[in-house]
């Protein structure tokens, strides 16, 4: 366990609970979650729908505030940040990938990729050349002038991956990135994410109920009913799901 002490923890979640007040009843979605995620790992959060995956995700991404408990990103408590610093964090530290892609429909693929760089204040020419580079990395050379509506689902998600990587974030948060894709394109996106995480040392955290994800994950966190059910490392996992090849 010496190794783990050296490796930096990029995300630390301590005792997080989240209640949603629906007027008459209060739903406790998260009932106390403690997590530590190491830099450079590919982590999957698994759990049935309604288990609080997405809610946990929004907490880690700084999109929502926990009712109790703290979320640290790079040892910074995100509850302490003001709006400006949060925007900075979202812009530089975290890249988002959504289930529904969420590309801006009126912009071309290239403009979608360069958008976060615009927010970060990268000058236009640099942003464009980096955008082209990123699009080439995700295998979309020559498609830069296409609008999202002119691309297939898998291609749109590739654009979203490129967009998430735009500001070289340390974390990529992917909320069911394969949820809207068929089997094959889903696999392509997963291997793309894995490749990016290996090449660039990005921490990938993905929420999913897609078992294909397990093969590439370094760590799987099982969530059930708003609690962490179990955390498995890759080696344990392969014993557990022996039939799968990686």
């Amino acid at each position: 366990m010496n190794r783990e002490m050296i490796i930096k923890q990029i995300v630390r979640v301590t005792g997080v609970t989240k209640d949603f007040d629906l007027g008459k009843i209060v739903v406790n979605v998260l009932k106390g979650i403690d997590l530590e995620i190491e830099t450079g790992k590919y982590v999957s959060i698994m759990g049935p729908s309604g288990s609080g995956k997405s809610t946990l995700f929004n907490m880690i991404g700084g999109l929502d505030k926990p009712t109790e408990g703290k979320v640290f990103i790079d040892e910074v408590d995100i509850a302490q940040l003001d709006a400006y610093e949060l925007a900075w964090l979202r812009c530089r530290k975290i890249g988002y990938i959504f289930q529904t892609f969420n590309l801006i429909p009126v912009m071309t693929a290239l403009e979608n990729v360069t958008l976060p760089m615009t927010f970060a204040g990268v000058p236009g020419d640099t942003a464009i050349s980096r955008g082209m580079e990123l699009l080439a990395q995700v295998g979309l050379e020559g498609r830069h002038a296409h609008k999202p509506a002119e691309l297939s689902g898998g291609q749109q998600q590739r654009v979203a991956v490129a967009r998430a990587l735009a500001n070289t974030p340390s974390i990529i948060l992917a909320d069911e990135p394969t949820g809207n894709l068929d089997l094959k394109t889903g696999e392509e996106i997963i291997s793309l994410l894995k490749q990016m995480s290996e090449e660039q040392g990005v921490t990938v955290i993905s929420a999913t109920h897609d078992y294909k994800m397990l093969n590439v994950s370094d760590q799987v966190i099982w969530i059930r009913d708003g609690r962490v059910d179990k955390i498995q490392d890759r080696d344990e996992l392969e014993i557990h799901t022996g039939g799968m090849s990686s």
Partner: peptide
């Protein structure tokens, strides 16, 4: 709404 939400997720400031 969604477009604006996405932009905010990507780090757009209110000002923008």
């Amino acid at each position: 709404f969604r477009e604006i939400g996405t932009m905010k997720c990507l780090g757009a400031l209110d000002r923008f």
